[in-house]
Amino acid sequence: MSEMRPQRLYEQIKTYLRDGIAAGIWKAGEKIPSEFELMDMLGASRMTVHRALRELSTEGVLMRVQGAGSFVQSPPPRSPLLEIHDIAEDIARRGHTHRAEVLVLEARDAKVDIAAEFGLRPRARLFYSEILHFENDIPVQLEERYVSPAFAPDYLAQDFRSITPNRYLQSIAPPHEVEHILHATTADERLRGLLRMGPHEACLCLLRRTWTETGTATRSLLTHPGSRYSLGSRYKLADFHARPG
């Protein structure tokens, strides 16, 4: 029978952190000591500490946020896929704090493909907003939204730090039809910076288009870090009426 080999130092650091999380020293969502603090506490090199944190992140124990540190991973929050929910309300229901940064809010000439989705000629004017949503000061969604001026003529006058675009638009008129298309993609450098993502982390993207009786109202691309968000739905088949074909 072979003898058990002693744990390497990076494995001991992983065990130390796992035990601390299990004991409630660091709870879900809380920040653990920084690399430099762990180096001082445990007498390890930065490379050794970095390896331990990297492996715990890969194993889903920690969430590493660029520029902020390492946090105890919580189960990714799930938002409904078949419904339109307000992100601020979803975050509040989890007992967390929402805030938003308005990166862009302007009228712009629509490119050919975007204009076509609204049934307009190329370079037709549409309202455009780009908003970064945070949950407990950690970015969880980049919202890129085109809005028909005919549907929401006062869109550019709103303060989207205090009300989300979704809530404002729902107050005008709920859509008659909604389309959701979900896909995964890799993030470019700008997106990684905004969402504080690792170099190899995938994005979860939801393309949402809404229509009213008069035509296309909005087109939104909602991008989330794959490790911090999930989308799902549960429904009864009896709720869906059978359709021919």
Rank of each mutant, 00 (worst) to 15 (best):
A92V: 11
G69S: 03
R121N: 06
L105K: 11
L156S: 03
A22I: 13
T97D: 12
S162R: 12
V112G: 06
A152M: 05
V49H: 08
G43P: 07
R123N: 12
G29L: 12
I138L: 09
L126I: 09
A22G: 11
V104Y: 07
V65Y: 00
M41F: 01
G69K: 05
V140M: 13
G67I: 06
G43Y: 02
I87D: 00
V65M: 01
P76C: 02
Y146C: 04
D113C: 07
E130C: 13
H50G: 10
E106G: 13
I87Y: 02
V104L: 14
V65W: 00
Y146E: 00
N136M: 06
L42H: 08
V65E: 00
R54D: 09
A115F: 01
V104R: 15
G67P: 10
N136H: 11
I131G: 02
P33F: 00
E30Y: 12
S45A: 10
S79H: 14
F127V: 12
G67M: 03
L42T: 08
A107E: 14
I138Q: 02
M41K: 06
E130Y: 07
V140Y: 06
V140W: 03
L120Q: 09
S34G: 13
T97R: 14
I84F: 05
Q141M: 15
V112M: 11
R64V: 09
R51I: 07
P80G: 10
S74W: 06
E55Y: 04
P122R: 13
L156K: 00
P153I: 04
G24I: 13
V147F: 06
F160V: 14
R123E: 06
G119M: 14
I25M: 14
L38V: 09
S79T: 13
F127Q: 14
P77E: 07
E135L: 08
M39Y: 07
D154I: 01
A92N: 12
V49E: 05
F134L: 15
K31I: 10
A152V: 00
A28S: 15
Q66T: 08
P76K: 06
G43T: 04
V140P: 13
A116F: 02
E143M: 15
V140N: 10
R123F: 01
G29F: 12
H96A: 07
E101A: 09
W26S: 12
P76T: 03
R51S: 15
L56N: 09
T48Q: 06
A116Q: 05
A23H: 03
S34D: 11
R108I: 10
V112L: 09
L62Q: 01
G119Q: 14
P76H: 07
L156R: 01
S162F: 03
E144C: 15
S162V: 11
K27N: 12
A88C: 02
R94M: 13
